[in-house]
Design a protein around this nucleic acid. Sequence first.
DNA 1: GGGCTGTACTTTGTATACCATATTACCCTA
DNA 2: TAGGGTAATATGGTATACAAAGTACAGCCC
Lengths: 230, 230
Amino acid sequence: MVGKVENTGMKVARPTKTLRELALGNLRDAILDGVFKPSDRLVERDLCEQLGVSRTIVREVLRHLESEGLVSTQPGKGPIVAPLDSDIAQQIYEVRGALEAMAAQLCAESDDPSIVPALEAALAGIHDGYIQSDQAKVLNSTSEFYRVMFSKVNRHVAWDIVNMLTVRINHLRSMTIQTGNRDVNGPAEMAAIVEAIKARDGALAYRAAADHVVSAAAIAMAIFADRQQD
Amino acid sequence: MVGKVENTGMKVARPTKTLRELALGNLRDAILDGVFKPSDRLVERDLCEQLGVSRTIVREVLRHLESEGLVSTQPGKGPIVAPLDSDIAQQIYEVRGALEAMAAQLCAESDDPSIVPALEAALAGIHDGYIQSDQAKVLNSTSEFYRVMFSKVNRHVAWDIVNMLTVRINHLRSMTIQTGNRDVNGPAEMAAIVEAIKARDGALAYRAAADHVVSAAAIAMAIFADRQQD
DNA sequence: GGGCTGTACTTTGTATACCATATTACCCTA
DNA sequence: TAGGGTAATATGGTATACAAAGTACAGCCC
């Protein structure tokens, strides 16, 4: 035991959250929740008051959200909530498709027997969410589904990217799951991914995941088209 | 023409570069050029002096580089140059492979006749770079090759991601192009991508691009293995 | 000599006040 | 009511301050 510290479970689990991280989360959530709408200005001093932190922090947070793509800054004018046009949204769906398909294939080719149950659990969560009309639960369980897919094959770099992109299309996702019979098709498509993984068919899993994103993207594009007509 | 401003090309092209952007570029370059080595601490006050800007700016820049993955910060200890382990590097190559293959396929399926010449020009640049033993030229032309590939099919979201990832493996790229007969194989593999695009064969272009990244990744992994033995 | 400890120094994390310049809003006038 | 000047506002940037956390080091004890 010399030179080796045994894990006694005594370690003080301090939150280690810096104020900045808290502020980042709060502001991101505020944007995602629609407190600030696309193209709304984000006035530094106002945010200081609203978040209860100093300008230093606010500026760092804005910089962070800027590189996440949620905020965009025009020099001299300051930061605004980044508007999302259909072209960008389409591209985001496309990249997600490529990466999620990759992850699905890797899952199918993996030996880990814990993957399928974990995915099925997430799928059940989605199902429950639809039954309970709990939109947040649907979204969270969907994220969980993909988080499992990526993390079970240790692809956290790809997962981080997917996650970052997903944030930007968050409101589209909310609207997508409320469309038509998405409560039936969506879970069915995801179940197909799980089936392919269960069957150890990498190519099929790849296609199933890619198809699912394509159909989600199609709905999102329809939403944009509708919006245009207003 | 009422209510619509014609683009007269008169707009004053002011540099609009904020100090922050300049500082960001400088620090990023310094890290890439090896002025700061992986795991080196990045002391804020020192950076203020070295960059000639205030701490506010330095902190914003650090936050930005952090989300690029070039810097990592432990709360209470401050920022360090993010070390790159072989697992992360492998994952980065993998994501690049997925996205570049996608772009190659889209190029092959595109009608734009300007794609092939543009790619061939970049390829020629790479070739020249090797002949002149100009490492920087090889890297720049390689980046240009992919930039063309993504931008000709208007996929700047994917390009931004690839670009961000590429920064993190920059030194591996430098080492990779100096390995063995990479001066022959590398360009040959990229020429194969161009050929597939020229032949309008999407699936082939996809595979050629994916294969190229795989072989680059393999060399990078060998470099890691060597390093381990020191 | 080697390890432990307390202290002094350094750096981070945060807040605040301040300034010059660029934008925006507004009001006044012709 | 169009135009123009002015005031208010916000940004981009700087400097300074200070508590808390982390680090280094001299000195003490064994």
